[in-house]
Write a protein that binds this DNA or RNA. Structure first.
Length: 160
DNA sequence: GCCAACGTTGGC
DNA sequence: GCCAACGTTGGC
């Protein structure tokens, strides 16, 4: 049996860090740092592996939606910002010998030909059958799993 | 800017 | 362990 590659969705506010910003980053890669939610951390620390597909979602945007495709570009490792007193993500209670917060690197693969908006997702019959965590009420998770079928469908909806 | 929903904190 | 208060998220 071959292992099905996992797929994920990560959120970013485009005013802070957009998919275009990731495309322009050195190596089109960035540390997905600053995640301070245990469930999101667990996905990164325990389940993400190099090569997993990542959908890059623009939250707090007009309109919100999936802007591009990326991939997991590193194994999980401790988020350095938790130990940096100058960082907004500094966590003085995290122990270096047992770091609390973990992350992976994320590398841009390709922009989608057009943004697949939250409305697109909510109104698509194929997506509707998939019960995406993203579409649940008041969902606030910043890193979440996505079924492969949803990734395929989003690429279709983007007109690729 | 508003506000509902949610996670975290801390007093008890 | 309970739960009220608080801060944050994120769509609108």
């Amino acid at each position: 049996m071959s292992e099905t590659p996992r797929a994920w969705l990560v959120k970013s506010e485009p005013d802070v860090f957009s998919f275009d910003d990731l495309m322009r980053a050195p190596g089109r890669t960035t540390r997905w740092d600053g995640v301070r939610n245990y469930q999101a951390r667990n996905f990164m620390r325990d389940e993400m592996r190099v090569g997993d597909v990542v959908l890059f979602y623009h939250s707090n945007a007009s309109p919100p939606g999936v802007a591009g495709l990326a991939e997991v570009a590193s194994e999980p490792y401790p988020d350095p910002s938790q130990f940096d007193p100058a960082s907004a993500y500094h966590d003085p209670t995290s122990d270096r010998s047992s770091p609390r917060w973990w992350l992976v690197d994320v590398r841009a693969t390709a922009p989608l030909p057009r943004l697949v908006t939250l409305t697109d997702l909510r109104t698509d019959p194929v997506i509707a059958g998939l019960d995406l965590p993203l579409l649940r009420r008041a969902n606030r998770l910043s890193v979440m799993p996505m079924p492969g079928a949803a990734v395929d469908r989003i690429v279709v909806l983007a007109g690729a």
